[in-house]
Nucleic acid binder design. Structure first.
Lengths: 226, 226
DNA sequence: TTGCGTTTGATGAATGATCGTTCATAGAAT
DNA sequence: ATTCTATGAACGATCATTCATCAAACGCAA
């Protein structure tokens, strides 16, 4: 029933202790909460959602057993905080990527390039994020936080598509175009997660490029203007 | 930590007992194995991978507690059999869909239509399949059986793409085209799983249609010949 | 066929491990 | 001196698995 794991785990906890524990009470609270959230991401990333136990949290965080309940009341609530943390981090990451791009075509490409390269994402976080999204299927309380068509993200893609369609006079509905791009990225993530060794950003990028060039030829075609 | 579930479960087990238990020994074995596999799919589909316990198997199958170990030795081995069952069923299903189509374009569309409509798949099986594929990320023993680029499926898509590219003289590599389609279907599945109420085959089909029309315009374009 | 000893399958109470959670205690910050 | 945080042993629940016990299917003789 159990996965491999090979290394002790406590090693890791000991290894990443560059920041000393704060002395004052207010700061310590945030410090410990962050530490537990990190440990949870690490544990889920390594052993999957079902592999996350309090014992594992203790192992990876190096903290005492009671800390989970002291700072989060229930393990369940910690998990929701973890998901919120992941969602926030992802949103901040892609929004930063989009912010530094001008025009709908550039914004759209920045979004895709961001996902293809997985900028601002460490591997564990990504796998944990996927695990939560899977869990959301049978546990609806996670759904709002990790929907495939997460409001802000999808709205950004859709508005960029709408602008391009208007500019280029393409015969496609913004909804359909945006969903296509979203689904494509979805598959990209999963393909990477299932076999990170095999996955190559170059190929992922080529797939997205081909898709965009096909539906928005004037903006992304091989011999596009500008 | 625990999900809802509302209904008793034992109800279900009692409900679907149209086939009487075989009396002869040889047949009984297959009968019980199938029953446990069904119960496992049901349990995973309802409560996720982490929600599958032997107790739950007993609840959904109506069989005795020892049956899992009697027929599959370990729960772990049962799970691998379940995955094999799901993989076989899916392969048989899409291959049947492809078999009744002539030419690469028709074959490709049959494949997509099959996934869009989710023919031959009950919902529980699909969710269970997704759960296994997620689990494969952290438990590599599941990987060969549920790879996104599962050999036979991907090869079929790729060869169809290659034929279309040759026919139409499209400027895209078969690999890239096939991956794009695969990723698209991936996203489709997840979108459905996360919110079956919201998902509409019509929209899923439209997204795929738009993609195909964009990359293979001569075969799938709005005003295509034939 | 019928009856009977043997073999095999099915059962579920019992087991030890691990789960998430509690709480009395110790210690540090205020 | 007081207040609050951190600790980890202990708890009951549940986990997967075992195995003694029972029952039914089987092979064979009559």
């Amino acid at each position: 029933m159990e996965r491999d794991s090979s290394d002790a785990g406590s090693m890791r906890a000991a290894a990443k202790e560059p920041v000393e524990r704060p002395r004052s009470r207010g700061e310590a609270k945030a410090y410990f909460r962050a530490k537990l959230i990190d440990a949870a991401i690490e544990a889920i990333g390594r052993h999957g959602f079902s592999g996350l136990s309090v014992s594992r949290l203790v192992e990876y965080s190096g903290l005492a057993r009671g800390m989970v309940n002291l700072h989060f009341d229930r393990k369940d609530k910690l998990l929701h905080e973890v998901l919120k943390h992941l969602a926030d981090a992802y949103r901040a990451s892609w929004q930063a990527a989009v912010a530094s791009a001008d025009g709908p075509a550039a914004r759209l490409w920045a979004l895709i390039e961001h996902d293809v390269k997985r900028k601002g994402h460490d591997d564990r976080s990504l796998i944990a994020w996927l695990a939560f999204r899977q869990e959301a299927i049978t546990n609806p309380t996670y759904r709002p936080l990790c929907d495939t068509r997460e409001a802000a993200f999808f709205a950004t893609v859709k508005s960029a598509c709408a602008a391009l369609i208007k500019e280029g006079g393409y015969d496609i509905k913004p909804d359909v175009a945006a969903l296509g791009i979203t689904f494509l990225l979805e598959g990209l993530w999963l393909d990477w997660a299932l076999d990170p060794e095999r996955y190559q950003p170059k190929i992922g990028r080529a797939v997205c490029e081909a898709h965009l060039a096909a539906i928005f030829p004037k903006h992304f075609g091989k011999h596009r203007q500008k």
